[in-house]
Computed example of a mutant assay.
Amino acid sequence: MLRGKQKRYLRSQAHHMQPIFQIGKNGVSPELLQQVDDALEKRELFKVSLLQNTDEIAEDVAEIFEEELGAQVVQIIGRILVVYRPSSKEKNQRYSTEVNRI
């Protein structure tokens, strides 16, 4: 579990990012989960936005990501989630090395 300072650092890193995934009327599908899982392995940190036409609720999506993918949602602002999970590959560990130092 992340501590407050670690979450703050991740939020600051994600601040200028654009969402790379959008959840629309199809909701959270197994295909979307697989893509998010792959992206977490490569990037560790990114944003996901919920479109207006989705029935999903941000908190529910956060729960699914945390349970299914072992990710942590460090922030929810309206319909945008900031998702983080340390990469298992050392070459992709851009944020997790700093998070471990905090």
Rank of each mutant, 00 (worst) to 15 (best):
Q34Y: 03
L81A: 11
V82R: 00
E63N: 08
G4D: 10
P86W: 14
E44R: 10
V74W: 07
Q18N: 10
E31M: 02
Q35R: 08
Y9D: 10
E66R: 01
P86M: 08
G78P: 00
E90A: 15
Q18C: 06
A71L: 07
Q34L: 06
R3W: 07
Q13E: 13
Q52H: 01
E41D: 04
V73T: 13
L32V: 09
I76P: 02
Q75E: 15
G70E: 09
R101Q: 14
L81M: 02
D60F: 13
G70V: 08
K5T: 07
S88C: 14
A39D: 05
N92T: 01
Q93M: 13
V83I: 14
N100Q: 09
E41P: 01
F46Y: 09
S29R: 07
L50Y: 06
D37S: 05
R11V: 05
I23Y: 13
V36Y: 01
Q75T: 00
R85T: 02
F46M: 06
V28S: 11
N100G: 02
S87E: 09
V61S: 04
M1C: 03
G70D: 12
M17Y: 15
G24Q: 04
I23V: 13
V82Y: 09
Q93H: 11
S87K: 04
L50G: 01
E66K: 03
Q72N: 09
E66N: 01
E63K: 05
V73G: 07
L40R: 03
L50E: 01
G27L: 03
H16W: 11
R3T: 15
E90M: 10
V83M: 12
R79W: 06
L69R: 05
E56G: 06
V74I: 12
Q52S: 13
S49E: 14
M17N: 12
T54Q: 14
K91C: 01
R11C: 14
L69W: 05
R85F: 06
F46H: 00
G27A: 09
Y9W: 12
L10W: 05
G27R: 02
G4V: 08
S87R: 06
R94W: 07
S96G: 11
M17E: 07
Q22W: 00
Y84E: 08
K42E: 15
Q22S: 11
V82P: 00
Q6A: 09
Q35T: 00
K47Q: 15
L32I: 07
F21E: 08
V48K: 07
V74P: 05
E63I: 13
M1S: 15
